[in-house]
Amino acid sequence: MAKVIVVTSGKGGVGKTTVTANLGCTLAKFGEKVCLIDADIGLKNLDVVLGLENRVVYTLLDVVNGKVNAQEALVRHKQMRNLYLLAASQVATKEMVSPEDMKNIVKSLHPVFDYILVDSPAGIERGFRNAVAPAEIALIVTTPELPAISDADRVVGLLENFGFNDRSMKVILNRFKIKMVKAGEMLTQQDVESTLALEIIGVIPDSEEVIIATNKGLPVVLNGDMSVSKVFENIAKRLKGESIPVDEDISQISEKGFVAFFKNLFSRKRG
């Protein structure tokens, strides 16, 4: 039976889709059978980040309309053979899908996968409710900036109303800049953790490699910055129940310079 996880945020542009793609790839790298569902109907992006935009034949809406079943609509990843995508439709609107539809789709995929990751759209309207409906765990992505954190807090409140609790909600701190934190010009991991009163499950560094990876259509964990890959591996392990302190993510980010340069050079697979 699959573990169903929604990746949400409230604020747009904080990296939900990138996190979903990379976390999905990392779990697949660990041998798990993973399905990614793009719930951002009308503004879909997950297929683009994964480099699968030309392979999409059927979308989530086709499943809702009964044209095909959920498994027939899945697209298999080019490199990760145990990673699948259920793409969203670009021409539809979020109102064409209901939370009940999402529950039914996920229910039909439940026995086939180990993990189902739902990429939520920004905002707190229908699209958000659709994405959250089938999930048992919520990953709230935020950057260490005021608008993102205050929107994340609003989402936490809404998720509580949907039945989520401290154990089923985790925070991912994205675009963390250790230099700025050290200079006292950015909120720290502890600041975010204490204000949101939720456990942080991962601290992802700000990396140019993410943009390069998106340009290539290959998530960064498959082709890029080793420190980012290591952080995603840590998040995946924590989701699987392993106890790895979040400080390890921070030390990954801090590890720059001569040693890190060579480490990166020899462990990187260039596409």
Binding site: E145, I149, G184
Partner: peptide, 12 residues
């Protein structure tokens, strides 16, 4: 005052 401190106060 560092901007982190200001941000933290505003956030609270």
């Amino acid at each position: 005052e560092k901007s982190r401190e200001t941000a933290y106060k505003r956030l609270e």
